[in-house]
Amino acid sequence: MNNSVYILKDRAILYVNGQDARDFLQNLISNDINKVTDSSSCFASLLTPQGKFLYEFIVVKHKSGFFIDCEKSQSEEILNQLNLYKIRSKVEILNLSNEFVVASFGYEKYLSIDDSKDILGFTMRYREDPIVLDPRNKNLGARLIINLEKLYLSLKKLELKDDKIENYYHQSHKLGIVPKNLNKLKNKLFGIECNFEELNGIDFKKGCYVGQENTARIKLKNKLSKRLLPVEIIDGKLDEDETVYCNEIEIGKILINEEYPFALIKFSNENFNKDLTLKSKNGSFKIFIPEWLKI
């Protein structure tokens, strides 16, 4: 069994609390907040009114409110966006990133812990702190959200050993799930094009939320023709926002060009062939389609 743990220092923890917290989040996020209980967490996003991607996060019940586990580079913007929508709602929104930290460890290790269940998003308490089986994909393992002061004692008790965060990024990219640089996606694609339906981040049965109308229309009218897909560089380098070509036909755009690259690809285009080498101005690469994505 792999006993590695990754301290995700690039994650932030926001806290939404107050008597209106549940209704407040329900009106904003793409998933159903009623799925979030003491024993269940969810993945969700915040979209523009047009349904374009802004932010993504994991929502975890904590005391009388909700932890928002998000990328640190997006945390202040998420805080500001939530405050913008707050108006007269009785909610308090705090940034607790100086107090809490997220640690991720493997799926098998998670299953070895007493009371764990093999259910995506299942949430249990370890010495009062939530451990969540990642609601997107179990191969991303579990997440412990814990006060910094208690972190290393809990890791010791769980017999977990600190490992390089790059190994976590690599595993996430290999699974086809964006590990970092989420700001490069902002306003550039629809939330549903980020594969949020397959990653359990959209609920099509809940009521209205910001961006719901276009998201539902794309789904119901079968208009989904582009998807965010991971890239494996063969040669050269990639530049952000450059065009992707297959046999000299334009079929997409590079959105994340750094160590763990992703491109928005017109997967339904007759010229797209996942087995062919694709080109950009300065590089050649392949797209790989994750096992969990049926296209």
Score class of each variant (00 low, 15 high):
107 Y>W: 09
96 L>F: 07
130 P>Y: 02
235 D>T: 10
47 L>P: 03
112 S>C: 07
139 N>M: 10
71 E>P: 10
264 L>H: 03
260 Y>F: 10
131 I>N: 06
152 Y>I: 03
202 I>V: 06
127 R>A: 14
191 G>D: 05
86 K>F: 04
139 N>K: 12
54 L>A: 06
164 K>P: 08
6 Y>E: 01
255 L>H: 03
176 G>N: 00
213 E>G: 09
97 S>D: 02
272 F>S: 11
289 I>D: 07
31 N>W: 02
148 L>T: 14
40 S>L: 13
80 N>I: 09
208 C>M: 06
144 L>M: 04
288 F>N: 08
42 C>M: 12
151 L>Y: 06
45 S>G: 15
176 G>E: 00
136 R>C: 07
28 L>A: 07
79 L>V: 06
188 K>R: 13
57 F>N: 07
11 R>V: 06
155 L>R: 03
103 A>E: 00
24 F>S: 07
190 F>T: 01
263 A>Y: 02
56 E>M: 10
6 Y>F: 05
154 S>I: 15
127 R>K: 15
17 N>Q: 12
267 F>E: 10
279 K>N: 15
219 K>C: 07
25 L>S: 07
78 I>H: 05
201 G>I: 01
270 E>T: 14
257 N>A: 15
82 L>Y: 04
250 E>G: 08
265 I>N: 01
82 L>N: 04
216 A>G: 11
239 D>L: 15
122 F>E: 10
181 N>F: 11
119 I>D: 11
135 P>T: 02
269 N>S: 15
30 S>W: 02
113 I>L: 13
81 Q>N: 13
46 L>I: 13
194 C>S: 14
269 N>C: 12
140 L>R: 12
238 L>P: 01
108 E>F: 11
177 I>M: 06
182 L>D: 12
193 E>I: 03
218 I>T: 06
181 N>R: 13
209 Y>T: 04
107 Y>R: 12
246 C>D: 12
213 E>Y: 05
289 I>H: 08
115 D>N: 15
50 Q>V: 07
210 V>K: 03
27 N>A: 12
14 L>G: 02
113 I>D: 08
234 I>F: 08
105 F>C: 00
51 G>S: 08
217 R>H: 09
127 R>M: 13
214 N>T: 15
264 L>Y: 01
240 E>F: 08
194 C>T: 15
259 E>Q: 11
127 R>F: 13
261 P>A: 07
192 I>L: 08
204 F>Y: 12
124 M>I: 14
175 L>F: 05
151 L>N: 06
132 V>P: 04
62 H>A: 11
233 I>P: 05
227 R>M: 10
30 S>M: 03
87 I>Q: 09
228 L>E: 03
279 K>Y: 09
118 D>G: 08
214 N>L: 15
217 R>I: 07
147 N>F: 08
49 P>N: 07
51 G>H: 05
161 K>G: 05
188 K>C: 09
295 I>T: 10
58 I>M: 12
175 L>E: 04
139 N>C: 01
15 Y>M: 02
134 D>R: 02
260 Y>N: 06
248 E>D: 15
72 K>N: 12
143 R>H: 13
167 N>W: 05
163 D>H: 01
128 E>C: 04
212 Q>S: 07
253 K>W: 04
158 L>F: 03
99 E>L: 11
187 N>Q: 13
38 D>P: 11
87 I>V: 15
292 W>P: 03
132 V>I: 14
